[in-house]
Nucleic acid binder design. Structure first.
Lengths: 324, 324
DNA sequence: ATGAAAGCGCTAACAT
DNA sequence: ATGTTAGCGCTTTCAT
């Protein structure tokens, strides 16, 4: 290729990268040769030499369930929108929400292959630091116990949850049920803390019978609602979107009127929450923005490893509709 | 690293890849040194040398809309499940359902070393062949006009659509509305063909007033339903999941009883279709299986470029619930 | 304004 | 049973 244009490989490189002056005439010749040979740069060689791949990996439970996947896909879209502008690639990896699977993926991601890793950890305890390669890591949405000196971009779950429950209390509800997945992620924990705090502030006691935690699935949401209902709640706060489907399924099947017999507040403003009867009051998480911020921070970090650690907490919004 | 273990780089390589006999003793030393130095293989160098990256790209409108993204994420999960077993990586790229964006991605991929590309083309006409690099390409879900000698893995949309419409006809419906996105993809086209064929076989005429096509969104589905309803259909077949939300939103708002006043059959069995009132009769596409098949075919193709072209058409299933 | 050449970390052919 | 060495296709320093 260099010979086709009668120039050195150095010149070709400089033409491609605009990295030093090259006469118009020479540029022309190079471009011509590139055209002739349908030349495509070999970015693998480039990565090897420059020690940069311009690939950022996003590791999250994207394929684990229909709904969590939508959340993380929105996040991915946000990441993508930033990376694309800077000519970075996004490599999506799935953690299956399982620590082992996740560790596997991190190992596969290996070293030189990525310039940075954005991840929503599946666990709290794993010794992630030992797995990571020599690239910056940013925790997104959730944070492991030892988040070390890593950048973090999360949602303020506690305050918005508190706001939702306080609203319910303001409407006169005293028996507010809480439904969520297992309390193993910082997100879930914060939501629960918000629930508790709203109760406490209103001088209410948390009642164990009104608290349901279990597997994240429609069926599990259905069953837990069934148990919860035995204790006569007048409202239910469900912190997971798929479980919320279970709640609605149960309520609809038993012809329990919402919000007259029971008020419902759910998490995540996916489209389907608009077409239930009635449309659901939900907490809308800034998923896309989470991705945007994460990508921005990651890029800053890549360009300046010495930057102080950044922790961003984005606020979620309570969207009041007719179920409360 | 090689010196740390007092062996040659060749031996290290062979230990890592199990590619020739190495004495237990030497293996031990190498593994020890790897441990000591927290050695991680440089897959970029490996790719450069071996001309294989073990990365398969999947290019689809994954981030374009909430629903198409469920579908393609399931496909991705299927692809992933196969690739992972063979220690391949999945690189996800988004086409935004726009040809230009898509071409851009292909170009970026082209310079990124991938061993294969699985794509759901956004357009019918683009001269894709000119964009592709030197790797196998497989068309998934949809096919461009010039699918050339490429492998294809698609869904049999026509027959299942026909089955759905025929069922409606069998139930006595004569005025069956058809609602879909713009007729630009092979998928949409096939669904329409199935609708038409069912009508024809029953001796019914297609009525232009009962056919609505437009933007794929909840709002657009709502508006189109509104127009369609002026022509008194007794059933509606909607081939897009997001538009189906618009249909349900309209029907619910206007308190039009389903299926008493109008029957509804929609596309895709996402969870939300179970919690509408009533639960929706839907066509369930084998999304995950589509991905599995595509990945399998791709791997076969990579291992044997001379294999005859493969075209797989998976069947979708009509899931009858209470809306019809 | 351009070229020569080293070398990124591997794999694989060739030696021994 | 293991070592030597030549590249893979780039980027980049040093020359001219």
């Amino acid at each position: 290729m260099a010979k086709q244009a009668n120039v050195s490989t150095a010149t070709v490189s400089h033409v491609i990268n605009g990295t030093r002056y090259v006469s118009e005439e020479t540029k022309r010749k190079v471009h011509e040769a590139m055209e002739d040979l349908n030349y495509r740069i070999n970015s693998v060689a480039r990565s090897l030499r420059s020690r940069k791949s311009r690939v950022i990996a996003f590791l999250a439970p994207i394929l684990a369930s229909e709904t969590s996947n939508y959340f993380f896909m929105s996040v991915a879209a946000g990441i993508q929108s930033v990376l694309k502008q800077q000519e970075y690639h996004l490599m999506l990896s799935d953690s299956h929400e399982e620590e082992e699977y996740e560790a596997d993926e991190i190992r596969m991601l290996g070293s030189q292959m990525i310039d940075g890793l954005i991840m929503a950890p599946a666990g709290r305890e794993p010794d992630y630091e030992r797995l990571f390669g020599d690239y910056p890591v940013l925790y997104l949405d959730r944070v492991p116990h030892d988040s070390g000196k890593r950048d973090c971009v999360v949602v303020d779950n506690k305050n918005v949850s508190k706001e939702a429950v306080s609203m319910l209390i303001g409407q006169g509800h005293r028996r507010i049920a809480y439904l969520s997945g297992p309390n193993m992620l910082t997100t879930t924990e914060e939501r629960f803390a918000g629930y508790l705090e709203a109760l406490t502030e209103a001088g209410l006691d948390a009642e164990p019978d009104l608290i349901g935690m279990g597997e994240v699935s429609l069926g599990s949401g259905y069953k837990l609602t069934e148990s919860l209902m035995r204790h006569r709640p007048t409202a239910i706060f469900v912190t997971d979107n798929v479980m919320a489907m279970g709640v609605m399924f149960y309520l609809q099947e038993k012809k329990i009127a919402v919000p007259d017999q029971i008020a419902v507040v759910a998490y995540d403003a996916f489209q389907w929450t608009r077409i239930t009867s009635p449309p659901l009051t939900v907490i809308e998480q800034p998923a896309f923005e989470l991705g945007v911020k994460a990508a921005e921070v990651m890029l800053e970090r890549i360009n300046n490893a010495a930057l102080p650690r950044q922790v961003h907490r984005l606020t979620a919004k309570l969207v009041v509709r007719q179920s409360s």
